[in-house]
């Protein structure tokens, strides 16, 4: 039986895409960059005074056709990088109150199409071994202490990363776990696509 799985691994060949060193093979239309004009109805006020705030956007399509998705996947902002983490970047995932979609998309970057490990990005099960905490979801009251404890348990240097509209701004569901000024990296989307997550994490450690 062990030969069967060895053979299967070889038979399938390489499935990993070249992204982020090349364009995405199959980028989703939503979430992606938005372009347009006017003041269409926006339930999260992501579009206000003709400006689009990607961190508030839940990509609900209610602003279409005035605004249209561009397919651009680089909808993230990096305020601080840690080049010291370039060769080994361990992230700790913290679900502070998600719908589950962000959890799945973050896990997807370790699937064969994306293979985050080739970029020296790894997931760790303990905040004590983490270089960055990736916060997902709104702040559910029961997770307040767990979030504080996980953050305090991490060694320096450490990055705080907000994944998805809920963590960045509260989205449409509630309050965000931290104020936006405290995040070093914001990864927009509801949920963010694996392309966006992978590129944002690579940039956060100084690529």
């Amino acid at each position: 039986m062990s030969n069967f799985w060895f053979g299967e691994g070889i038979r399938k060949g390489r499935k990993t895409e070249k992204f982020p060193f090349a364009q995405p093979d199959d980028p989703p239309a939503r979430p992606s960059g938005l372009e347009g004009s006017g003041e269409p109805y926006c339930p999260t006020e992501a579009i206000k005074n003709g400006k689009w705030d990607q961190g508030k956007c839940i990509f609900c399509r209610l602003c279409e056709p005035e605004y249209q998705p561009t397919g651009r996947q680089d909808i993230f902002s990096v305020k601080k990088t840690e080049p010291a983490l370039k060769k080994s970047f361990y992230i700790y995932k913290l679900d502070s109150g998600t719908c589950g979609a962000c959890n799945v998309e973050l896990g997807t970057i370790f699937d064969p199409q994306f293979d985050a490990n080739r970029l020296n990005i790894f997931a760790t099960n303990s905040p004590r071994h983490a270089d960055a905490i990736v916060i997902m979801g709104i702040l559910a009251e029961g997770m307040r202490e767990a979030l504080k404890n996980a953050y305090e348990a991490m060694p320096e240097p450490k990055l705080i990363i907000a994944l998805g509209a809920c963590a960045i701004s509260g989205g449409i569901l509630g309050d965000s776990p931290m104020v936006r000024e405290d995040y070093h990296v914001e990864i927009a989307g509801c949920p963010p696509s694996p392309y966006t997550i992978l590129e944002a994490l690579a940039r956060a450690r100084g690529d």
Binding site: E8, K12, K15, D26, P28, A29, R30, F59, R61, E105, T108, F110, D111, P112, Q113, P191, S193, P194
Partner: peptide, 20 residues
């Protein structure tokens, strides 16, 4: 291999419904 297949289905959903 199952993760690869799951992502394949996510892409089918994305194309069919406009969102993953």
């Amino acid at each position: 291999q199952l993760g690869y297949l799951r992502e394949k289905i996510s892409r089918i959903i994305s194309r069919a419904a406009g969102h993953r």
